[in-house]
């Protein structure tokens, strides 16, 4: 298990009577770009949110970096983690949302500084310096003083990526990061993600960008109806799908 950043064993998740995840088994290796595709409602976003415990798993086991998510195991018994312990683990997992979720009352640079200062106790000066480097890395060094409402969707999403990177995570989760963007802004965000992948970051990406999955992805999983239908190398799955369901989905999106 040393090599697996994320490991899921029979993960189930229900919202009331609706079972969204019906037993997910998968493994994300350290340093790889892992793409999750599938129709909406297939449970891919829910699974992603389980990884940093924004959603509680109902059954099965989910490990991040070899440690159980949300629980502590002593013998046969599971103990729920305290909120502070969950928060501690989330520091190492960056998340990028479909709707950016930047803090609108803070400028771009303040958004990036917020967590290092408030969570890690970094000094403001040091956090600001790091934040400026990160903003430059995502190509927004000149927008540091702008509020999110003064930025385009693509710029906001790149700030959101910088904000997540500021915590120096060992795993990055992307929840349809380009789905809310104008088509011509998608490229900028994907470029940043590509750079990040090349730097060796472990990434789990829920996406509809098949081009990105094919070029940058190391593994790909096709989900439907709460189960993994097909998985493998993105180039193989996308060009030569084995299942009928995968084929019909890909014929609609490609």
């Amino acid at each position: 298990m040393t090599n697996a950043m994320v490991k899921a064993e029979g993960v189930h998740k229900s919202f009331g009577a609706v079972e969204v995840l019906k037993g997910i088994d998968l493994e994300v290796k350290s340093g790889e770009v892992f793409c999750l595709i599938g129709p909406s409602g297939s449970g891919k976003s829910t699974f992603l949110r389980c990884i940093n415990h924004l959603e509680k798993v109902n059954a099965g086991r989910l490990y991040v970096d070899g440690q159980l998510v949300g629980y502590r195991q002593k013998g046969d018994k599971l103990y729920e983690l305290k909120d502070s312990e969950v928060a501690l683990k989330r520091r190492d997992i960056g998340m990028v949302f479909q709707r950016f979720n930047l803090f609108p009352h803070m400028t771009a640079v303040e958004n990036v500084m917020e967590a290092p200062v408030q969570v890690k106790g970094m000094s403001r000066a040091q956090a600001k310096e790091r934040a400026m480097q990160l903003l430059q890395r995502v190509g927004l060094g000149d927008k540091a003083g702008n509020y999110p409402s003064q930025l385009s969707g693509g710029q906001q999403q790149r700030v959101a990526i910088a904000r997540a990177l500021a915590m120096e995570p060992k795993l990055m989760l992307f929840d349809e990061p380009t789905s809310a963007l104008d088509p011509e802004l998608v490229g900028d965000v994907l470029d940043v993600m590509r750079d990040l992948a090349e730097s060796g970051m472990t990434m789990v990406v829920v996406t509809h960008e098949m081009g990105f999955a094919r070029e940058v992805g190391d593994s790909l999983v096709f989900m439907d109806g709460g189960v993994v239908v097909e998985s493998g190398n993105p180039r193989d799955v996308l060009t030569n799908p084995q299942h009928e369901r995968t084929r019909s989905f890909l014929s609609k999106v490609l």
Binding site: L54, L88, K89, F103
Partner: peptide, 26 residues
């Protein structure tokens, strides 16, 4: 927006800090 709380939690902020730094100012 609930996404604000989620984003703050995802960054590892505690409940009280999320409330104080993110939710209440908005």
């Amino acid at each position: 927006d609930e996404g604000q709380t989620e984003a703050a939690h995802a960054l590892g902020m505690s409940h009280s800090k999320t409330l104080r730094r993110i939710v209440v100012p908005q």
